[in-house]
């Protein structure tokens, strides 16, 4: 199971599973969720800054995915489609609640075999990054999360955000500059 979690989802298998989900197969849905939820929750947590809201939104993403299963045409990767739904939900959520992501993340550092000081530093740095990312404009935040955190290619990000690749590149460049500026206490002026 652990191996399955780290394995990249196979597109062909996703297509087969989606066809089964469209026919009402709950086991196929269970498998799809198992494959994609960890990355989805990771992305949503980066966007909204709250584990509970991220899980709530991820649940809604899968409900919508299930509803759309019959109409889904495998023109893009399923993972891209899932993030596309997620991003639309995030935008709706902000519009509905009129709020920005929370800056305080419940971040769990994984100390491993690091010393306590090092672990504390990692936590401190992670929190600083999360606070800085929360301050970015929405497009820049989404673009930097998708490229750095989710390791998606520019083309996929452009597809998710429904903009040209050039816009994605611009937002990522601006996001890096802004983060650098916000974290100047750690890294000095750019």
């Amino acid at each position: 199971m652990a191996q399955e979690e780290t394995m990249l989802p196979d597109d062909e298998d996703d297509k087969r599973l989606m066809a089964l989900v469209a026919d009402g197969d709950d086991d196929a849905l269970r498998l799809l969720v198992h494959r994609h939820h960890a990355r989805l929750v990771g992305y949503l947590r980066g966007e909204v800054g709250s584990q509970a809201t991220a899980e709530e939104l991820a649940m809604e993403v899968f409900i919508r995915l299930h509803r759309a299963a019959g109409r889904w045409r495998p023109e893009a990767k399923l993972s891209t489609y899932i993030i596309h739904i997620a991003r639309n939900l995030v935008l709706n959520e902000w519009r509905r609640r009129g709020r920005k992501p929370t800056t305080a993340l419940e971040f769990a550092a994984e100390p491993g075999d690091q010393s306590q000081d090092s672990a504390r530093r990692v936590t401190e740095l992670d929190e600083a990054f999360q606070r800085a990312i929360a301050q970015l404009p929405p497009e820049q935040r989404t673009a930097i999360l998708l490229v750095v955190q989710q390791e998606l290619p520019y083309e996929d990000i452009a597809q998710i955000m429904e903009v040209p690749v050039s816009s994605v590149k611009t937002w990522i460049h601006r996001a890096r500059s802004r983060l650098r500026e916000l974290l100047k206490d750690f890294y000095g002026p750019a």
Partner: peptide, 26 residues
């Protein structure tokens, strides 16, 4: 550090999430 910090939050597995989704979908 940016890469390291963001990649730590890349995957957030939630125990029993698939079962919760199936219940919600039903």
């Amino acid at each position: 550090d940016l890469d390291a910090s963001l990649s730590r939050g890349r995957e957030v597995p939630v125990v029993g999430f698939a079962e919760r989704v199936v219940t919600a979908v039903r």
